[in-house]
Amino acid sequence: MGLVNSIFATVQFEILRVLTLRRLSVAVIMALFPPTMIFWLQAGGALASPGFIITLFCGMVCLLSLLLWSTSNVYAELEGKSWAFITSRPYGRWSILFGKFLVAFLVSFIISWIALSLCMLVTGDLDFNILNDGKEVPKMQVWLALSGLLFLASMVYAAIFSLLGVLIQRRAMAIAVVFFTVVEVVFAVIPAVVGKFAMSFHMFCLLTHWVGWVPPSAGQDEDANEILQDFLNVYGRQDAWVHLAVIFAMTLLSLSLAAYVICKREYITLEDSQV
């Protein structure tokens, strides 16, 4: 009970810290970036594939927010010299890890979900050209599916980046960017077992389960469906629950490892090492 209480205390405290003009401005800018871009592209007649572009922009916003919030979980406390106050409490280390994970997850999901919802509003009656078994997927279903994916992405990447933040302090954000590029972008497109280590692969599979294929460009639905079939033939067809289970398992594994490391590790500040 004490642990749960202290985790929620950290969530509450961190949210209080968010409520500064600077941090709120950053959040607003991030939430407004995708709809502004969509509006601008639409106005210029350059919005070829709205579903793909919206997914890309909202995913980027979600990722950026997670990088800002998760990777600095330990470093921000060491840098802000609040580490000594937190670690001299029985639940300090646990609550910093889980409290900050929850805040990063919630804030990133909320920002990216607002961005997604605004994008849907901005596109109005625009046809998304998303077909599933030859039928046009309703926009509401696309919105629900992408909301679900943003939720899962916020959760799993918040956990992975929290682990990186616990392991590496000084350049955790840069390492997280490299990690994402290598594992989540490069690995994900390799048609081999290694691709299944990428969470983006499982999310892509979920997207195909929920709404079918989001084509990279308009007017290529048939080609896109062919690409999808090839893709599924290479990777195998698994039920949605398998992908969901992998994503939840990865979240748990990352958090468990991070909890072990944060509790067992000596974090030495610059002041300490100068004796």
């Binding site: 004490g2 950290t10 810290r17 106050f85 029985p90």
Partner: peptide
């Protein structure tokens, strides 16, 4: 522990900060 560190949180009151740190003790 009263460390040789100054706490500085804009917009957070002393009461909220001390209460938060006390909550981390399980209260």
């Amino acid at each position: 522990l009263c460390p040789a560190i100054q706490a500085h949180y804009p917009f957070i009151s002393g009461l909220k900060w001390v209460a938060y740190l006390t909550q981390l003790r399980g209260f």
